[in-house]
Simulated assay, not measured.
Amino acid sequence: MPTIEEMRAQEVWNNCAVKSVASGVMGGGLGLMMGLFLGALDNPITNDTMTGRQQFVFTAKQMGSRSWSSCKTFAVMGLVFSAAECIIEKARAKHDTTNTAFAGCVTGGSMSARGGPKAACIGCAGFATFSVLIEKFFDRHTSSSPEHREREI
């Protein structure tokens, strides 16, 4: 039997706004780390007249701007996807792959909407497909766990 604190914590976590903000923060953290990593791998074109210190500062600035850009992108992506999936799940009163596909479509379409309707449609289809594939990949691994098999029985 869960305690009162556990039930309250579950109640808070079931709130779409809380889920979305948490996903946005985690997505931003992931984007920041990826930006730092990929920024470090970039081979910037530096001027031959730059000193070692100037090259270091130049590279650090590039890494910082790339990390911040990735941070913002992943934060928005996580927030939009999580909010869309949560709202769709509550409206349909079901947890299935359809929710993931629609949330992926909303996310991909909104992230690429600046490119016009064609880009939004392609973004919708691409992100929905990617989301469903990831859902199926993780579902396959959880379905073989003993806990999942017990729930099915």
Rank of each mutant, 00 (worst) to 15 (best):
G31M: 01
M33E: 01
F37K: 09
G39P: 00
A40Y: 12
L41D: 06
D42K: 13
D42S: 13
N43I: 06
N47W: 04
D48H: 07
D48M: 08
M50V: 00
T51Q: 00
T51A: 05
G52E: 14
G52K: 11
G52W: 03
Q54G: 02
F58W: 02
T59C: 01
M63N: 11
M63W: 02
S65M: 15
S67D: 08
W68L: 15
S69I: 03
S69R: 13
S69C: 07
K72C: 08
K72P: 01
T73L: 14
F74W: 09
F74L: 11
M77R: 01
M77W: 09
G78M: 06
L79G: 10
L79M: 10
V80Q: 01
E89K: 15
R92G: 02
K94Q: 15
H95N: 15
T97D: 09
T98Q: 08
T98S: 12
T98W: 13
F102E: 06
F102T: 01
A103N: 06
C105W: 06
T107F: 06
T107N: 08
G109P: 00
S110W: 06
M111D: 04
S112G: 02
S112P: 01
R114D: 11
R114A: 14
G116R: 05
P117S: 14
K118N: 08
K118Q: 15
A119L: 07
A119Q: 13
A120D: 06
A120I: 07
A120M: 11
C121N: 04
C121F: 14
C121I: 14
I122H: 00
G123F: 04
C124L: 10
C124W: 02
G126K: 03
T129K: 05
S131N: 10
S131V: 09
V132R: 09
E135T: 09
E135K: 14
K136M: 13
F137N: 05
F138H: 04
D139Q: 02
D139T: 09
T142A: 03
S143K: 13
S143W: 01
S144A: 07
